[in-house]
Amino acid sequence: MPIAYIQRTQERYAAFAPYKWAINTEAPWTPLAKPIRDCRLAVITSGGFYLPGQEPFVDNDTSFRVLPKDVNLSQLKIHHHGYRDADADRDPNCVFPMDRLRELEATGVIGELAGALSFVMVYSHRREIQERAPKMIAALKAMGAEAALCVPV
């Protein structure tokens, strides 16, 4: 059985103010206009990845970092409040698969790889929606992204 993460998180952080989980009754929908082999694809990760020289994340912020498609995964840093990073440390592709995606771009599975956007969750989905999402959408448009692969950690 899959883990009931909402319940286990509530138990784990019982001593803290309860997190208000996003519960949506409908899913937004945009049809995929063309096959992935013809799409310019961006990656969105909540893994807190950033590069040396970029500003690290701080607790509860709504910023994000733009990582280039040719990002060297061995240079990545992670800034995250609760994260088992041992495997991601050895091989970031288990959660941020840029090496694999570049291979799939080279073999034509993906039309073209745009960059990636990286962030860390903020403890308010209202702030995600109102503060971060519009900026990320603008960044995706600036990248020319036609589809996005989202990988939450």
């Binding site: 807190g48 690290p56 994340f57 607790d59 990545l76 840093k77 992670i78 800034h79 995250h80 409040h81 609760g82 994260y83 088992r84 990073d85 041992a86 495997d87 991601a88 440390d89 050895r90 860390v120």
Partner: peptide, 15 residues
């Protein structure tokens, strides 16, 4: 919850 990749993590919040 926390991993062992301290080379990557410079510290964050509870950690």
């Amino acid at each position: 919850l926390y991993g062992t990749g301290e080379s990557l993590q410079e510290g964050f919040g509870e950690k």
